[in-house]
Design a binder for these strands. Structure first.
Lengths: 206, 206, 206, 206
DNA sequence: TATGAATGAGGTTTCATTCAT
DNA sequence: TATGAATGAAACCTCATTCAT
């Protein structure tokens, strides 16, 4: 059909993996997790199904990988410092807003994660571990760059951050994917912001 | 072959519908939502698959019906009044503990609900509406029996109750079925109790 | 395509099961076990694949069933009596010849059994049990109809028969499907006949 | 990227072939014949799949090669002479016991061989030829070192040995991998010993 | 010679739903 | 109304083999 043949092999392992994940995510966003088959992913990615299974053990594995790279890196370092040192409402609100906005943008993807965890939470233990490690490392970094925080035990800080992050994530998921807390986002953000600050104070101040 | 058949259930439409739903829920609890097929429900209910499709137009329809009318009413009236009027920590803590205990006792049922909502949340809009109506009615009742609360607008009270209930439910689900907030329940209950009270104060006190 | 439609349902469960097994066996004989797919069985039987799986749990299950009905009933009652009472060479030789001929006629089927047992012998425990029960019942019958045998303990007779039957089966399988004992069948039959009689004498005479 | 690659094996064709076969056999033992793919062999051998197909033209070809040259030589020369000249029960029993013990020790290997032969017996014709040659040579050796046997035609001796060896092998395989002849090994060994001697006598004595 | 990414037909099995009886 | 046999698209996944590099 096409005399101008593409080369058969690209030797681009990384690129392929990325392509598969991206295609998978795109399709999930378009159709929802349960409506995306591995064959469809292959077709849409322009690969054979065998290639998919060369790189991933199973469909679940693809989903899993899709989340390994997405540990939210939209958290601004100086914002966090400000929040931890001053409990500033406005800054916190911005953080919450951003988090919500991100979840709305990738609505279907996060929903897929919700589904996947509900169906098989074991698969996500690693992912969870990664997040915890990330937060722990992040909070240690924060602690070491602010005199005011240095006197608080490392664990206290990371626990407080873990807790508030988990809270934030939970409430956003509930609001978007399950049962809305409020009819408009503005009120929701206000509420979550307050709970977030409340949580931090609760565990950081003694 | 044998004309002398026993009638199975004497046209008991209601009874059959109930039986189907109960069987469906039981199987979900035993095997998880994704592992229950309509054919299995039929078999376990001692009905034919055709009969099920006489009463329900699809599998989704059964799921939908299954979560109507299952509102848990283990909330004690006088406890709620005490909480709303005094924000008493101990009483609230008891409420939270009970809620958690109930979810642990009926772990599989609640988990199944979690799964079902994750996979098909649209189906649960009605269910949600029912809960809201229930809480609204309940809070109106509360309001009318306590002078102190009568001056607060009805909507304010029901909103506050809705919000804190939703929060409680969300956090318990997250803790049990997704990502534990704390390693032991004691700490978790303490945390949730504080958030619960915080929420009530936030919306009831102006 | 065909206005003269066949009725869709036949309500002939037994017939269907028989048809599936027969088709399966026929295809195995034509192509060998590993080359017969369930889809092919469905196609050749004129059924949909779903129908196959309504009647059988798995491919292995079909194979299994195929053997449940084949407990060799070509053994002549009076022949056995003659053999057990006189150890007659000629009669025994006839039995062995028949057994060999049967296996040659259904070569691929027996070979499939061989393969299946090698791959998953657990599946055939039931089958084996059935054969043992059959032989036990058969030998009890024999014992009760011959005065000469009545004084020998039932277990002794059934054990001797079991052993010699197993021996016969084993050697025929080895000869046909693995490593020929002799280049021509005549010599093989002679040898096996002698071993068969030797075994019987060994365990029946004290 | 890095031109300074270490050579893997210095063109060691023999070594690679050996490695492939050994890996293949090891994996069969570990996982069963049907669960070993060529790709897995490559991975476990630390070679690329391409390399395997440089040395073997197909999977069958590897299997074929794997069973060349593995003739077990645990048969003691003087034992055989004693058995052939005196039909001594005790010595024969020892031989049978050893054979059984060897198969129990290398259970998985022998079972794998069983599987492999069942699935693809054609491949083993050569292997069988080798065994026959080995036995023929062995029996010639025996014949020439014992006056008593020298007068018997060479073919008679090797046939008798071939037959009894095949019998022994068959029965041990059946006992271990398919359908046990007896519940305990002691009885089994006794029975096989008797059949073994019976066979020898049958073909050696005229 | 060595590599290993890529192939894709084909395997087994599931299950919501239909419809003749 | 009740039955349940029948459907068949579609799911996930395997693996011997090829061939450009």
């Amino acid at each position: 059909m096409d005399d101008n043949q593409e080369p058969k092999f690209h030797r681009d392992k990384e690129g392929k993996i990325k392509l598969i994940i991206e295609t998978f995510v795109r399709l999930i966003i378009e159709k929802g997790y349960t409506n995306v088959s591995t064959n469809l992913v292959a077709k849409e990615a322009g690969l054979s199904i065998g290639t998919i299974y060369n790189y991933f053990k199973s469909k679940e594995d693809i989903l899993h990988s899709a989340f390994q790279g997405t540990i939210e890196d939209f958290i601004d370092f100086s914002d966090i410092i400000k929040i931890l040192t001053t409990y500033d409402y406005k800054t916190t609100k911005m953080l919450v807003s951003k988090y919500l906005a991100n979840h709305k943008e990738y609505y279907q993807l996060h929903k897929a994660q919700d589904q996947a965890i509900a169906i098989n939470q074991d698969v996500f233990h690693n992912y969870q571990k990664n997040i915890e490690d990330y937060i722990r490392a992040f909070s240690e970094q924060v602690r070491q760059s602010v005199v005011q925080l240095a006197k608080i035990p490392a664990e206290t800080i990371s626990n407080a951050m873990m807790l508030s992050t988990n809270l934030l994530d939970t409430l956003v998921h509930q609001h978007l994917f399950r049962v809305s807390f409020f009819e408009n986002d503005e009120e929701f953000v206000d509420y979550v912001t307050k709970l977030f600050i409340f949580t931090l104070k609760l565990y950081l101040k003694e």
